[in-house]
């Protein structure tokens, strides 16, 4: 290490020590650099995982379930409003018959006087033809059966919304995968659309009366009939809105899933439901 006969100075002692370190340093630095890089990478991965967990905690609560429950409850209240308002001419001077028809209404509820008989004749005529006694396509049974089925239908929709809210609360604790959550959300949406369409088709027959009032006018003994069904109109528009919004939610879910698959970004529900799909 040192040449023989070489004299030792206090300054040279330090330089010798430095030489000794230099030989080992090159080996050490390469090893330590590699090790440090690996260490940093692993640490970075761990930090990323912890960040992802933080974003999941920020996940928003989807309002579609709550909105569905609110709308269904409002519609359940609307069912108790008058289903039809009928107005027609009376035989008496300046006399006009106007009646509100509520749900579960039948002939007994309308009355047995001459004026009420005119309204009964609109729905079920006493002077029957060979083929039918009903000339407008609606009977008093429709005012009892349709509200009943509509009541069950909207109750089911409210229940569906509640189940979805409960599912979301469970999901917050267990944190399912985004795909699973989207599928469950879409299944709920599908059931909602089917039930809403069924109710839509059930209620739309209240509009068929306008065609038949025009065409079958000669057969009707009561003249100048005005028929308005505010409940049917309100429920129809509400159901159409529910169908449209639910389908658009399904569409947005599909597009967001597509985006997630294409970008290969970290899959967290906060990213999925950004924009308008928070419904």
């Amino acid at each position: 290490m040192y040449r023989e006969g070489e004299e030792m100075n206090p300054n040279k002692e330090d330089s010798l020590n430095e030489d000794f370190f230099l030989t080992t340093k090159n080996e050490k630095t390469t090893k330590e650099e590699i090790l440090d890089e690996n260490f940093k990478n692993v640490k970075g991965l761990k930090e990323k995982k912890s960040e992802d967990k933080k974003t999941i905690m920020k996940k928003p609560f989807l309002k579609s379930g709550i909105i569905l429950v609110i709308v269904a409850v409002i519609c359940l209240g609307i069912i108790y409003a008058p289903w039809a308002y009928v107005k027609c001419d009376s035989d008496y001077e300046d006399g006009k018959v106007d009646k509100f028809i509520f749900k579960n209404c039948d002939e007994d509820d309308i009355g047995y006087d001459n004026e009420s008989q005119k309204i009964i004749n609109i729905f079920e005529s006493n002077n029957c033809s060979n083929s039918s006694c009903n000339y407008v396509g609606l009977t008093f049974d429709d005012f009892s059966n349709t509200p009943k089925i509509t009541f069950y239908g909207f109750s089911f929709l409210a229940l569906l919304g509640l189940i979805f809210i409960i599912f979301q609360l469970i999901e917050r604790k267990h944190s399912f995968s985004v795909e699973r959550f989207t599928i469950v959300h879409s299944i709920f949406s599908t059931v909602t659309i089917i039930v809403s369409t069924f109710l839509f088709v059930l209620i739309i027959k209240f509009f068929g009366i306008y065609f038949l009032l025009y065409y079958n006018d000669p057969f009707l003994t009561t003249k100048n009939i005005v028929f308005v069904s505010p409940v049917a109109v309100t429920l129809l528009f509400t159901l159409a809105a529910i169908i449209k919004v639910t389908f658009s939610i399904m569409k947005i879910n599909c597009i967001e899933l597509e985006k997630n698959l294409n970008t290969n970004e970290p899959k967290n529900p906060f990213f999925i439901y950004k924009g308008g799909s928070k419904l």
Binding site: N127, S132, G208, F211, F219
Partner: peptide
């Protein structure tokens, strides 16, 4: 359907009827 009683004329039918 062409009807003779109580009134002569054509009676229109929808699905319910």
């Amino acid at each position: 359907v062409t009807e003779t009683t109580p009134v002569e004329g054509e009676l229109f039918f929808n699905l319910e009827m």
